[in-house]
Design a protein around this nucleic acid. Structure first.
Lengths: 188, 188
DNA sequence: TCCATACTTGAATGATCGTTCCATAATTGG
DNA sequence: CCAATTATGGAACGATCATTCAAGTATGGA
C-alpha cells in the first residue's frame, strides 16, 4: 500500500477551534474553516463528515484540552486554595482568546443533544476536580468548612464564565484579576 | 392626509429581541425576524434599514429595558444588600430566557463599534447604580467597608453573566440560587 | 366615494451557503 | 516505473441568504 503524507488532524482541529471560537458556528463558513485548518475542502468532509460534526469535534477537543489545563493549574500548588487561584489566574491570562465552551453554550443553549453529551461529561470531571481541591482547602483551613463544596465548585465554574464574558467584552486584565480576588473572597 | 394604522414598532422590536436572543445575529434569518415581529419584510427594511441596524436597535432596547429592570430590583428594598439580592434573584428567575447582552458580547466581542457604543453607555449606568447600593450596604453594615465598591460592582455584573451562562446551559434554578448566595458571600 | 398613505405579500436579484463531483498532483510500497 | 492511496482545488449543485422591486390591500380624512 502506498501512503502519501496525511494531513495533521490535530493541527486542523486547532484551526477549526480558532475559527469557531471567534465567529461561532453560524458565523463560520466552510471557506474560513479550510483556510484556517490548512487542508482542502474535500479532506474536511472526508475526515469530519460535515460542518456540524466538525463543530462537535472541535468543541470536544477544546473541552478536553481546557480541562487538562484546568487540572494542571489546580494541581500546580500544594494548597487547595492556591491551586484554585492558579486556575482562575490562568483563565485571566487567556481571557483574550474567546472560549468555545462559553460560545457554544450561549449559541445553542441546551438544545443540541450532541453538545449536551460532551458538556455534561467534561463538566462533571471538572466539577469533581474542583470539589476535591475545595475539600483540600477546607482541610487546610483556607476555605470555610461550612461551605458546600459542590456549590463552591459550581460558583467557581460560573465565575470562570463570567470572567471570560467580561474579557470578551473588552475588560482589561487588571479588572479581571479583581474579579478573581472577589470570587476567592466568597470561599473564606 | 390619510393614515392607515401603523404597526407597533416597540412590539416588533420585542419580537426581534426574542429571535436574536435565541439564535444570535448570524443564526437569525430575515424570514424568522419578520415572522416573529409580525410585520412585512418591506416594513422591516423601511423602519430599521437593514438586519445589522435592526440588531443594534434590538440590543439597545433590550439593554435599556434590562437596565430599567435591574434598577427597579436594586431599589426594591430599603437596605442596599437586599436590593442587590433582589437584582440577582430576578436574574435567576429570568434565566430561562437567553440574554441578548451576553449573546451579543460573546458573538462579536469588542469588534463592532456600533455595539461598543451601546454597551459602554449602558454598562456605565448599571455599574454606577450598583456602586451606589454597595455604598449603601457598607454604610448599613451589611457589606465589608474594606471592599472597593467599583470592584464589587464589576464582580456582581460578571456574576450576572455567569448565572446566565449557567442557566443557558441548563442548570436548574436551585443551582442558580446557590450561585447568588455564593456571590453575596463575597461581599460580607 | 375617492385618494393618498402605510403596510403586506410574492417574486426577483445576486451573493453566499454547505456540500459533492471530478480531475489532478503528490507520495510510497511493490 | 507502476499502482494504489490520499491529498488538493475548481467547478457545479441546489438551497438559502439579505435585500429590493412591483403590485395589491387596507385605512381614514376630504
Amino acid at each position: 500500500m502506498a501512503r502519501p503524507r496525511e494531513f495533521d488532524t490535530d493541527a486542523a482541529l486547532d484551526g477549526a477551534i480558532d475559527v469557531f471560537s471567534e465567529h461561532g458556528f453560524e458565523g463560520s463558513s466552510a471557506q474560513m474553516l479550510v483556510d484556517a485548518m490548512g487542508i482542502g475542502r474535500q479532506s474536511l468532509y472526508a475526515a469530519f463528515g460535515d460542518k456540524w460534526q466538525l463543530y462537535c469535534a472541535a468543541v470536544h477537543r477544546y473541552g478536553l484540552d481546557e480541562c487538562t489545563r484546568h487540572f494542571g493549574a489546580l494541581r500546580s500548588d500544594a494548597r487547595g486554595i492556591d491551586g484554585i487561584d492558579a486556575m482562575l489566574r490562568r483563565v485571566v491570562e487567556t481571557a483574550d482568546q474567546p472560549c468555545l465552551g462559553v460560545s457554544s453554550t450561549y449559541e445553542f443553549g441546551a438544545s443540541r443533544p450532541d453538545l449536551e453529551k460532551i458538556k455534561t461529561l467534561l463538566g462533571k470531571s471538572l466539577r469533581e476536580a474542583i470539589v476535591a481541591r475545595v475539600h483540600d482547602g477546607q482541610r487546610e483551613g483556607d476555605i470555610a468548612p461550612s461551605l458546600d463544596a459542590q456549590a463552591a465548585a459550581d460558583f467557581l465554574i460560573a465565575n470562570i464564565a463570567g470572567i471570560r464574558v467580561a474579557g470578551r467584552g473588552g475588560a482589561d486584565p487588571a479588572a479581571l484579576v479583581s474579579l478573581v480576588d472577589m470570587a476567592l473572597r466568597a470561599l473564606r
